[in-house]
């Protein structure tokens, strides 16, 4: 790309050099301040012993990673269920015919109610409430109903994402599909949804990153996943280091997922909107 190595390229190099210098200097000041000041706090020694205990970290980590598999499993079975339910809700909300009016009302009420209550409350209400009806094992497991609560709440959010995607497909696409004799549902299935889903993959990934973390909330009603295991270790050894270890395990998964999401958002923007304004 030695096409335009003129005045402008030199100016941009200089600008870039200066902004890197500013960023490096300011980061250095912040890090230096933390390193210099935090150990001077009166009880730093106690905090270091109870949060950053290396031996404790090494002892807990394998147990935490074992427990983390449960988080991964919950995530893996919740995700397809969420996508399927959210698609159904989004399509119900987008239905046109008068006969489906009740379905539209139900789906609007569903998204409003599920999004209007904190997810922790749903986990308590569904996770304790439904097994409390006296359902026989294994259908009374808190793990099952906690997962159901996750699926129900997340589907409400994801349904809104799908709905935005469906509405972003131009009316003329539907007109073309209908003019060819395709029914409403055939147009949806073959023309509208494939385009809608493609467009909402990036925001969808955002929700999946959140879900990956929120899975830990299921621990509140019993299942021993990583957060619960960290709590057990904390109580047993009277040390908070397991929480730090759990946080690191989460970061190992969520950071790559977030980067992947950003990359996909960027790619989608480049594809649809051309070059970015500097």
């Amino acid at each position: 790309m030695a096409v335009a190595d003129g005045r402008r390229a030199a100016w941009e190099r200089e600008k870039r050099r200066r902004s890197i210098a500013v960023a490096a200097a300011s980061s250095l000041v912040v890090v230096a301040a933390i390193v210099a000041l935090v150990p001077r706090m009166p009880r730093w020694d106690r905090v270091r012993a109870s949060f950053f205990d290396g031996a404790q970290f090494r002892d807990s980590l394998p147990r935490l990673i074992d427990a983390f598999w449960l988080d991964v499993r919950i995530f893996l079975w919740c995700t397809p269920a969420i996508v399927a339910l959210a698609l159904l809700v989004a399509m119900a909300r987008n239905s046109r015919s008068a006969a489906l009016f009740p379905l539209r009302v139900i789906s609007v009420a569903y998204t409003d109610v599920m999004r209007g209550v904190p997810i922790i409350l749903w986990i308590y209400l569904i996770g304790f409430g439904v097994p409390g009806l006296g359902i026989a094992r294994p259908w009374n497991s808190p793990l099952l109903w906690g997962s159901v609560a996750m699926v129900l709440t997340y589907s409400a959010y994801v349904a809104e994402v799908f709905r935005a995607g469906i509405e972003s497909v131009h009316e003329s696409q539907r007109a073309a599909a209908r003019s060819l004799g395709l029914s409403h549902w055939q147009s949806m299935r073959h023309v509208v949804l494939p385009q809608a889903v493609r467009r909402v993959v990036p925001p969808l990934m955002n929700d999946m990153v959140s879900l990956q973390k929120d899975v830990a909330l299921v621990s509140l009603i019993g299942p021993i996943e990583i957060l619960r295991q960290a709590g057990v270790d904390k109580a047993k050894f009277a040390n908070f280091t397991p929480y730090i270890a759990a946080a690191i395990v989460f970061l190992c998964v969520t950071i790559p997922l977030t980067r992947l999401t950003d990359w996909m958002i960027d790619r989608e923007r480049r594809r649809t909107q051309g070059t970015r304004i500097g």
Binding site: S172, Q173, A175, A176, A177, S179, H190, V191, R198
Partner: peptide, 11 residues
């Protein structure tokens, strides 16, 4: 029917 803006399915 054929439309002014083609309305081909881009996917």
């Amino acid at each position: 029917m054929v439309f002014q803006s083609y309305n081909l399915f881009p996917h």
